[in-house]
Design a protein around this nucleic acid. Structure first.
Lengths: 216, 216
DNA sequence: TAGATTGTTAATCGATTAACAATC
DNA sequence: TAGATTGTTAATCGATTAACAATC
């Protein structure tokens, strides 16, 4: 029996959205049932890996038939938190920050940015994609009113720690960190690091390895 | 002795940019030397982890003194491939794609997008941030001329596999995949998955775990 | 010398893979 | 029943942590 109190491994959490994306695609193509072996084949993951990952989620499949596709999608979306509406603030409406404000895809996945904060006077008072930009000084006050728990950090690197500290002081519980800086936070604060540059580094390294292999 | 042929673990590659970011910040603040224990403390990582990670890179520190900060930064940047100029194509100039075209930060980290491809006629022929958008049909021809090896995939989910196949057929060796879909590729192709939604899922799950803990 | 730091080698921990039992 | 699939339990693999030797 899957247990909500068992901590789901991070690699599993990162794979579950792949299964979901494939299931959605299969449904679009008219499928009604999906077996884990089928998913495994199509997206190139070990079948036992898929089975193991599903064991963390409360999905029930039928032998010889697989999973009912609508049920699978609903269950995965619910488990991953994509159906809930999570309100969030964004800190730093620079180029990366404003891109995120423009991205309507986030709402589909359960994240609604309700306000952005910056210190640039020319930005304060304006809106991006109907989301108001306020001065950072007003954050505490607005947070107290709304009780938002998620903060998106898109400030310049050298302000990352400082702004993170302000966020935490104001009551933010989870920080989605887009800066390449690893911020320090108390134990009871969740940090999700999403640095494009770190991913670039991995890709460059693997590409180099590939090219060296070919030389031999 | 560090060896270039030893495969560097992915977790290490993802941490190295953190050390780099901290080193740059420390230099800005006037530091000239940095010890690994100092880095470890400041960014909240085990000192032995930092030491182990550095063992993959050819950095040489001095006992009691640490690392010479300029040398450390140069070495890390070189190792991570941030100093080389890697040319890349972008596929799919939608909302996410055009955000990336606007982001000048990528050039700083060694990635230069030289052209974008799309199938929307109203986009073809225009430019974003001085980067020309071409019709996808012209990709093969342009690739043959330029020999670009990196492709950024920012098309809608249901076209991810199809466009990836075209990229590979044209000679792309590394795909930076921003779609939530896990594309299948031959063994000698590098894929770097960067799905914001996967990261969201991890964050939501950890946040939920946190809130449940507090209840008890 | 004493103390601090690098950097390696061994032990632990956790995730992945493989094997297999259960079910329809 | 035979075969295909779910889903669990055990074995393997790799990364992290801990211990410690080497160095200035």
């Amino acid at each position: 029996m899957p247990n909500v109190f068992v901590k789901v491994p991070e690699p599993t959490l990162r794979r579950l959205p792949w299964y979901l994306a494939y299931a959605k695609l299969a449904r679009q193509q008219g499928e009604t049932h999906l077996s884990s072996t089928q998913i495994a084949q199509k997206i190139g993951i070990d079948a036992s890996q898929v089975a193991k990952d599903f064991s963390f989620v409360t999905v029930s499949g039928k032998t010889r038939v697989g999973y009912e596709i609508d049920e699978l999608i609903t269950t995965l979306e619910q488990f991953l938190g994509f159906t809930n509406c999570h309100k969030a603030f964004l800190f730093g409406a620079g180029s990366l920050g404003s891109s995120l404000l423009h991205d309507n895809g986030l709402t589909q996945y359960g994240l609604e940015v309700v306000a952005a904060f910056d210190i640039k006077v020319e930005l304060v008072g304006t809106q991006i994609n109907r989301i108001p930009i306020q001065h950072l000084d007003r954050f505490m006050e607005i947070q107290a009113q709304t009780g938002v728990q998620i903060g998106i950090l898109t400030v310049p690197v050298n302000q990352a720690q400082e702004v993170a500290d302000i966020m935490i002081a104001g009551g933010i519980k989870a920080i989605w960190n887009f800066t390449p800086f690893r911020i320090r936070v108390p134990e009871d604060i969740v940090v999700q690091n999403t640095s494009l540059y770190a991913h670039l580094a991995v890709m460059f390294n693997r590409l180099r390895g590939l090219l060296e292999e070919e030389k031999e």
